[in-house]
Amino acid sequence: MLQRMELVDLKLVPSENGEGNVYVYINPSEEERKYLVDALKLDEHTLSSALDPDEQARLEFEPEHTAIILKRPRNYSSEDRFVFRIASAGLFLFADKLIVVLGDNVPLFLGKQFLRIASLQDLALKMIYSSTAHFLEHLKIINMVSDALEEQINTSMHNKYLLNLFSLEKSLVYYLNGLSSNSRLIERVKHNAAKMGIGGESLEFLDDMAIENGQCYEQAEIYSNILASMMDARVSIVSNNLNWLMKTLNIITIAIMLPTLVVSIFSMNVSFPGKDHPGMFWIIMGLALVSVVLVRTVWWWKKW
């Protein structure tokens, strides 16, 4: 799917004449990929990298354009079962156009950073920055989910909440990898700023991007460390909750077992003293009750 847009008066708007200078290819078809490779001379491998979630972020210089592969968080869907994944995106910066290649259909160019776009280079930088902001928002959500799971674990005996926490831990590893990869990309863009036609305010913006990305990485690292270090404690809590349940069930079983024994002894089909006594039923009931009190007293005395 192709979306054509253009930069008009420092704003990005949908192209009215069908031309434009910003082309967004979402999950490009075979025909579109052929056009990009043959007509625009995009490197086939780099184009595939833009759609491959496992590729590292990088910067490559081609004769007619600069290729930027960046990492961004993939939008979460309920099938992901608390695993937050990352995806790649490709920005192909030509002198007169920017081609954006993405694997999935997500609304782009939202947020205050896109309210004023000075140039195509500026737009490319803001897209990298927007990816860091997206990572940061997802980190806050991971923290919220982790807190909610912790609340559930405190009273639960199920493994599913623990498994969800493991999924979050895995997500943070993906995020750390994506953020460190983007960090290297930002450094490379900074070193090659002049070659890419980036200067003035955009250079300052690049510094801000590096700081933001670094902070985001540190935050992900802290969350990951907290989750990893607390995991054993949470496993113990679930195990302990289960132990408490087993203990309660045991109390019930033993409390019923002794009176059952007393009643069964008197139910034997043999002659026993006082069997013809008119109050024998209540005597047996009384003995059964005494056995319950006895169990309770021993339990209390032993502090079980």
Partner: peptide
């Protein structure tokens, strides 16, 4: 209406 459905960020915003 969101192309990605009710994903993580709207879910968090709704809960908050």
């Amino acid at each position: 209406t969101n192309p990605a459905g009710l994903h993580a960020r709207p879910s968090a915003a709704i809960a908050q």
